[in-house]
């Protein structure tokens, strides 16, 4: 027990120490950096609104990833799935007349589009044995190129210099802002995201397919021998994972921007991997974990302005070190539990 405590301490001190040393190298006190991060993310209502908006994206992507992680898969395609969902949603919303029927189509298109991407990864995994890290990464690049092409060749807004589409009809602005200020990013989808986390938790812990997903994640051979089709579970997990990432389009397009902007994503899909890891793939823990990473993400913008040598990319170092620290702690805890188990038997 005492040894475990030392292990925890060493990991925590090394991690925080490493970050602090990097801060000091750049002539900043670590405490000042923390202050900037908190101030920029939570100081004003406008800042808080952006932070919650980021948290919404992270929650959708991370719960999706958590479902796939629980099945022992490691897709990193949430980024591409989110972009693809946003792109298709915008395209459909621009092309269709603003009727109630097309409202349904607009809502569903993004979800379908991202699910298709997830199923492609599942196909490669099950039929070709291709590792999902590779296929999902390739799809990310392909989606980025496709979005560039669609916007620049077909949907470029005529009234804007930026690479972005025209604004969709206001009938499609489905999700009103939480804050009263005009154009405030956080919108009602934030609550949907929280709901999605709870639903995903219920699905994984309390339903039969959820149990099968976890069983495959724990041990493929045991699951297979007890009559679970591993392929079916892979398709299911990757499909649900992509579907949840697709909800991001509601937040981004129908809730906030109302248009597709190239480069709108602050790497939400990749950050969500960290969010899910820190939450130990538990959808309920993803809610606070998303808020934490959203604070880091929003806070990072303050670093550019308020320090001389530390830029927003510094947050990537902080994230990396925190994740490593967390993974090490988690591993140590599992180890000391296993040791305790071994002593008892």
């Amino acid at each position: 027990m005492k040894r475990a405590f030392y292990r925890y301490g060493i990991a925590a001190i090394t991690g925080i120490g490493a970050i602090s040393v990097l801060c000091l190298f750049a002539h900043e006190s670590p405490w000042h950096v923390v202050q900037i991060l908190l101030n920029t993310s939570l100081g004003e209502p406008e800042d808080l609104s952006v932070t919650l908006f980021y948290a919404t994206h992270l929650m959708f992507c991370a719960t999706g990833l958590a479902v796939a992680f629980q099945a022992g898969l490691f897709p990193i395609g949430a980024e591409g799935q989110l972009s693809f969902a946003c792109l298709t949603t915008t395209m459909v919303a621009i092309m269709l007349p603003p009727t109630y029927f097309s409202l349904v189509i607009v809502l569903v298109t993004g979800l379908l589009a991202s699910t298709v991407l997830g199923l492609i990864v599942a196909y490669f995994k099950c039929k070709k044995g291709a590792h999902e890290v590779i296929t999902s990464m390739m799809l990310n690049f392909i989606v980025a190129a496709f979005a560039n092409y669609m916007v620049s060749h077909h949907f470029q807004s005529h009234s804007s210099q930026d690479p972005e589409t025209a604004i969709i009809h206001s009938r499609f602005w489905l999700f009103p802002s939480i804050f009263h200020a005009e154009g405030s990013p956080a919108n009602v989808t934030f609550f949907l995201a929280v709901l999605a986390c709870v639903a995903a938790w219920y699905f994984l812990e309390k339903t039969r397919p959820g149990f099968e997903i976890r069983a495959v994640g724990k041990s493929k051979s045991v699951a297979q021998n007890s009559g679970i089709s591993v392929e079916r579970i892979y398709v299911l997990a990757l499909g649900i994972s992509a579907l949840l990432a697709g909800f991001g389009a509601w937040n981004q397009i129908l809730g906030y921007a109302h248009k597709y902007q190239i480069g709108f994503s602050a790497d939400y899909g990749f950050l969500a991997i960290a969010v899910a890891l820190v939450a130990r793939n538990n959808p309920l823990a993803i809610i606070p974990s998303s808020l934490f990473f959203a604070i880091l993400l929003k806070g990072a913008t303050g670093l550019d302005i308020e320090t001389d040598f530390i830029t927003r990319d510094f947050v990537k170092i902080i994230q990396a070190v925190l994740i490593l620290m967390f993974l090490v702690l988690q591993k140590q805890r599992d180890k000391s539990r296993a040791e305790a188990e071994a002593r008892r038997t």
């Binding site: 750049a26 960290a274 947050v315 170092i317 902080i318």
Partner: peptide
């Protein structure tokens, strides 16, 4: 590791 390098390089 990729994330770390992506952060260290601009630093």
């Amino acid at each position: 590791f990729n994330l770390l390098i992506a952060g260290v390089a601009p630093y």
